[in-house]
Amino acid sequence: MLKELKELWGFRELLYVMVQRELRIRYKNSILGIFWSFLNPVVQVGVMTLVFGRILNIGVPSYSAYILASYLPFMFIQFCVLDSAQSVLASLPLIKKIYFPREILPLATVISNFIHLLIGFGVFFMFLLITFLRHPQVNPFQIGTLMLPALLLVSLMMAIGLGFLVSALNTFYEDVKYVAGIAMYLLFFLSPVMYFTEQVAATGANVESGNWLFRIYHLNPLAVLCTAYRKALLAPVDVPIRGAEVSPPVDLNPLYYVWLVVFSFGTMIFGYWFFNRVKWKFVERP
């Protein structure tokens, strides 16, 4: 694996150009071009503010910020998984004609999505600033924001690992992308994106099970990831549970974060190993 890493380093220039190409092609034939990368998160912020601030009115101040803090990383992982499913297949004509380390294909997909995640968080912080100007009691900058680079790194490792696995598997079995699509759809509801982890803890079923459901729920690393972003970037907040009651903010057990880091790092290493094992078979798939 070290030999492959060394070779990959030799081709870093190609990776750079590939990422550039992905970013360009995405909006190549559109009038607004790269501006779409900004517009997408802006529209998301607008819709969420409207729905959760005005229509549903949950009672949590700047609820949409709490949604977005989890929504952005979740979408990043989702796009990485779904896009990288096609990354090797779409370039099959190319890799049948010319050699370069095949790892570059899913890596370029993940990195271009990562750039979109960074843009998304840029918009996110602008939104926090605007909220702060309108409601000075909402502090836009938490001490936990310093953890953002670490969180981004963990997300990137997870995305790279999943990208390697999905792109390699989908090249041989094209059902994988449908399985991945369904899995991501389910995980969206099984992760605290549209709700809070405190609400999971307070469900009757969880209390009856002696908090076991809560533990099992957090075996899903995406659930931990979503909560990690939320806790780091935003002020702790009381969450309405069971109708009229309110739950104080609950900190996650540090073990869950350890699990998240171990999972992400492990997936990256395993994905890279697996990809390298099968990459020579891509062009020969029966």
């Binding site: 190409r21 360009r24 092609i25 190549k28 034939n29 004509p93 190319l94 049948k96 004609k97 010319i98 050699y99």
Partner: peptide
């Protein structure tokens, strides 16, 4: 390698 001319080109670029 010139296995097929233009094989590595992307049509939209």
């Amino acid at each position: 390698p010139l296995l097929e001319l233009g094989a590595g080109f992307h049509p939209d670029l």
